[in-house]
Simulated scan of single mutants.
Amino acid sequence: MDNMPPAGVRPRRIIETHTLYSVHLQEDRTIKVFLPPGYPQAAPYAVLYCHDGNEFFTHGRIATIATERMQAGALQPLVIVGMAVNLARRTDDYAVDGVRHEAYVRFVAEECRPWVETRYAVRRDPAGRFMAGVSLGALASVSIHARHPDLWRKLLLFSGAFTPDAVRWLERMPSFSEMAAYMVVGDEETRVETQSGVFDFYHGHFLARDLFLSHGADIDARVAPGKHVWGFWQRQLPEALDWLDRHRG
């Protein structure tokens, strides 16, 4: 690893916080950017965009986990972009039938991505861009890929909110042949309470997996012990980051 400290020495982490005004959403959005130790010596870096961006850093501890794995030589350096959610409008933004979903997709693709790429030494090709989301954020990731396969093709999907309505939406999509995804669900996610109702994300995980595979997508689908909570997703991050490392173009 470039410019990494010796084993046992805590590497210096840099997380920069910005406020980006979205014309499409008509509001400010907080963007947190994790820069790996040694940045920018190994430029350009692969870049991972995360929905629920604050929570990925606080509850998911993604910067700590990534840094530890980089220091251990298990993960190549990468930049992580956390796109903060508007909690009051999360369903409106992330759900494929949400009233602001199209605006949110445009914010990510047309505002956040170009803004990151003009300010940071990151890759600008789909082989070097990744996207991650939990629950509805996972569904939003799939939706953004479906609309912009030229921008994002590689996804980390944690406990995707593949409800019956979402699966019907997936069935209407023309193709997922260019998609590669790491999918994981908890074995206790058969009855998940959400603001929109109670759903079986466990079996929805397999329905979505089979649909993606039928389109020729590259899917690594897993089940692990756990519930629909950040503690579960945090435990899955090391393996998800390993998958990301293997799929860098």
Rank of each mutant, 00 (worst) to 15 (best):
D218P: 01
F130S: 01
A88H: 13
G82D: 05
T118S: 14
V33Q: 02
L156K: 02
A84Y: 13
A181R: 01
T19I: 01
I14K: 15
H59N: 08
I15E: 13
A43I: 11
L75W: 10
R248I: 04
P5N: 05
M173P: 11
L48K: 02
R235N: 15
A63S: 10
D52C: 00
G73M: 07
R147D: 12
D200R: 04
T91W: 14
F158A: 02
D150I: 06
Y104Q: 06
A240V: 06
V192H: 10
L151D: 10
Y202P: 08
M183Y: 09
V198S: 03
A224T: 04
V198K: 10
A7F: 11
F206T: 06
V184D: 01
Q26E: 13
F199C: 09
S214Y: 09
L213M: 10
R222C: 09
E117Q: 06
G137R: 00
R209S: 00
V33R: 03
L241A: 05
C112S: 07
H215L: 00
Y202G: 12
A221K: 10
E55T: 10
R106S: 09
P238C: 06
A88D: 14
I62D: 03
V9M: 11
V47D: 01
A140T: 05
Y202H: 12
M83Y: 13
G98N: 01
W115M: 04
L170N: 05
C50F: 07
V105K: 13
A217D: 05
P37L: 10
A240P: 13
I65D: 03
H59I: 04
R12A: 15
V47Q: 01
E188M: 12
P149E: 10
D52S: 02
L155P: 05
E68R: 10
H101C: 10
R168F: 13
V23A: 15
Q234C: 09
R222T: 05
I144L: 14
V108Q: 04
G160L: 04
M173S: 08
